[in-house]
Design a protein around this nucleic acid. Structure first.
Lengths: 204, 204
DNA sequence: GAAGTCAGTGAACGCGTGTGCACTCAAATA
DNA sequence: TATTTGAGTGCACACGCGTTCACTGACTTC
């Protein structure tokens, strides 16, 4: 990559990182351009070389956040342990992923309903995409082979909703408390099992 | 009530109503004092006769919102139809309540994660209170008599989470679409049934 | 090595903001 | 009826904001 372009990329990342961090206190929408550029170590007008508005920054952050999530599920599909023991393993994967990308998950949780309309819509859209992807994955799990594709999609939806809720909890959990994290995992697992059990009973 | 005090109350209501309405577009936290007082038909400095900050307005709105909710569940407990046919009836009650208090529910959904910390905490607290109240109600339902109080509380938690999620959906639904509302009710009912089924299977 | 490109600069602007303060004048009190 | 109270007023101020524009100077291209 040409040096010029690389430096531009670095500044862009700095702006995104600053916005992500600052939005944690007050939400994306009441973030000021000057505040963000100050934190990014750049002059206010430089912002316009990268984004037209703060909203665009928000969309870029949504993109970043879900890239992480997509990578997570792609890796999980290759891991035989996850396929064998879906529920236990996916609770571990979820908590680990949220811990490693705490700020991104907090951003998504906060802006999913609290953000500007275009950001809200983008998050909603990404979540629906994620549900579809998860459904494709679940359809390959032996126990669910006999299920209709509608039912699998509905289970995927419930799992993702559970995931969003647990992510909210992990984000709200202080950093050095593995006991609380275990509790959240335990509840997440129990709930996923109940979803499957309830579904089986419902179908019968 | 003395005339003076009555007039003060009216202005206070006007400020709250203006804040509720305006926050729908952009969120409570990026609402300006002047904007709100302008919409309330009062001069900016008059604001301070009623509130110290916008945050305090937010807390008052949380209070208002949950008063509605509490009245709703209290009425429902007296209605024999609800007790007999808990799941179907409560889905109806929920959708009706959200429709009648759309702005308050939207406010709670939005500010639950997107609002200022004190408002978020207040909403969280009210939701936990509501779960307890619902658990007391559920404990009196015949089918659940044999359940442990922990299990009943957990079901109440799942019901409330379902409720919050459905409220988000109803709020996002345009007004004149009874078909979409029916769809949401249908899903809410199905999910509550699955929760109970999954729980029964889990306990066995 | 000269010419061109373009990420980042810095001064300037008009605007809406929160808040302080002295005020009015109807309602409440005595 | 005379006095006090206090909800709402109107002006002023300092401040941070988004955006404009002409600029610089290192990197890229030729």
């Amino acid at each position: 990559m040409p040096l010029r372009q690389a430096q531009k990329e670095r500044t862009r990342e700095a702006i995104l990182a600053a916005a992500l961090q600052l939005s944690h206190d007050a939400g994306l929408s009441q973030l000021s351009l000057r505040q963000v550029t100050r934190a990014a170590g750049v002059v206010p007008t430089a912002f316009y070389r990268h984004f037209d508005s703060m909203e665009e920054v928000g969309l870029a952050l949504v993109e970043q956040s879900f890239m992480t999530l997509r990578r997570m599920i792609r890796d999980a599909q290759r891991d035989p342990e996850v396929v064998d023991n879906l529920i236990d393993a996916s609770a571990d994967v979820l908590v680990a992923a949220v811990k490693q990308n705490r700020e991104h998950f907090a951003f998504v949780a906060r802006e999913r309903l609290g953000g500007p309309a275009p950001v809200r819509d983008a998050i909603q859209h990404e979540l629906e995409l994620f549900i579809s992807e998860l459904a494709v994955f679940l359809a390959r799990v032996p126990e669910l082979q006999s299920w209709s594709s509608d039912d699998v999609t509905m289970v995927a939806g419930l799992f993702v909703r559970n995931m969003v809720y647990r992510a909210e909890q992990v984000v709200a959990t202080p950093d050095g408390r593995p006991d609380l994290e275990e509790e959240i995992k335990r509840k997440a697992r129990r709930e996923m099992r109940m979803i499957v059990l309830g579904f089986e009973k419902w179908r019968s």
